[in-house]
């Protein structure tokens, strides 16, 4: 959109520059035609905005069917229609202006000043009409956006009534084979996504690389937990049987001299705490248990624990973009692609 207006600005600037001298009829006509063209483009842009607003308003109505959303959606729809009509008008006028400018240029080339002046006038008039239509389109578009905002507000205030409100949560792409999944994963990895994941019914080897995952630190956690177990066994036995309350049996030592008798329990506690460390380490790193997750909204996803392979890219990713992400996933040829929405709240 921004690029379009920039391009449109150029001829206008040029013509004003040329206009420093006495502008010829041909030049005036060309200028008018360019202006009309720009106005038509603006009108088209306004129409698009109005249409989008109308679509979103309709979406709001679909999710939260109520009087307010229905009215707002209707209003937006009407405004969008109006903007469309205006845009067509502007386009027609721009065509007329263009045509007149062409004729003026031809006449000027032939040296027919009067004809050129007449065409130039026509072009000016057409350009004015185009500008007006564009203004009207803009107004209609503003109206549509206004209506859409109303619909949005109505939707947000109506959460809990009827259908709950939803927002996009992630893209879910399904693949038939681990090979396809690995290839797709590499593409997603190379595109620089971070909040994304592969979902497989069993651990697929090679995906660590394909996803670009750093090695897990679980071993470190388990090791620390095991050492805590070892030390706590020594301290426990020493505290209970030596410091707090020495139990002397058969005249045997109670302190560190009793080391051999401490070994079995040192070993068992090391194992026990390593086990706990590993269990809680897995749960911590995997952020489980997490019984509710937007990905479960997809019914298709139930095959992820059977025989299908999935890639999910979350909306929260910095690089996430509705269109680009979709295009990226489409380029990996998934057997199914879905935008999964989650409830707001």
């Amino acid at each position: 959109m921004a690029d379009d207006t920039k391009d449109d600005d150029k001829p206008r600037k040029k013509s004003t520059l040329l206009g420093v001298g006495a502008p010829s009829a041909e030049e005036i006509a060309a200028d008018a035609a360019a202006k009309a063209e720009a106005a038509a483009d603006d009108a088209k842009a306004s129409e698009r905005l109005a249409e989008r607003a109308a679509r979103e308003a309709a979406d709001d109505e679909k999710h939260v069917p109520s009087k307010v959303t229905k009215a707002a959606a209707g209003e937006a729809e009407a405004a969008a229609d109006e903007a469309e009509v205006d845009a067509v008008k502007a386009r027609t006028s721009a065509e007329v202006a263009k045509d007149a400018a062409k004729k003026a240029a031809k006449a000027a080339a032939k040296g027919d000043e009067a004809a050129a002046a007449a065409e130039s006038k026509k072009a000016l008039e057409a350009s004015e009409r185009a500008a007006e239509a564009s203004k009207a389109a803009k107004a209609a578009s503003a109206q549509a956006i206004e209506a859409q905002k109303k619909a949005d507000a109505a939707r947000i205030s109506h959460v809990g009534e009827g259908e709950p409100e939803k927002r996009p949560a992630l893209y879910l792409a399904e693949y038939e084979s681990p090979e396809a999944l690995a290839e797709a994963a590499k593409k997603v990895r190379d595109a620089g996504y971070e909040k994304w994941d592969c979902h497989t019914p069993y651990p697929v080897h090679g995906l660590d690389d394909a996803m670009g995952l750093p090695p897990t630190k679980l071993g470190f956690v388990s090791f620390i937990a095991g050492m805590v177990g070892l030390v706590s066994a020594v301290l426990m036995i020493q505290y209970m049987n030596n410091w707090d309350y020495p139990i002397i049996i058969g005249g045997k030592p109670t302190g560190i001299g009793a080391f051999p008798s401490m070994v079995p329990i040192m070993f068992e506690l090391t194992i026990l705490l390593t086990g706990f460390g590993t269990l809680f380490g897995i749960l911590h790193f995997a952020k489980l248990p997490r019984h509710h997750h937007p990905i479960f909204e997809s019914d298709r996803f139930e095959a992820a624990t059977d025989d299908k392979f999935f890639i999910s890219i979350e909306v929260g990713d910095q690089k996430f973009d509705m269109k680009k992400t979709r295009a990226l996933l489409e380029s990996t040829e998934p057997s199914y692609l879905e935008l999964v929405e989650e409830e707001i709240g």
């Binding site: 019984h291 509710h292 479960f296 019914d299």
Partner: peptide, 13 residues
């Protein structure tokens, strides 16, 4: 199919 409400995520903890 979502089988648990989001508020349940804190329950295990």
């Amino acid at each position: 199919m979502q089988i648990f409400p989001r508020s349940l995520n804190l329950l295990p903890l």
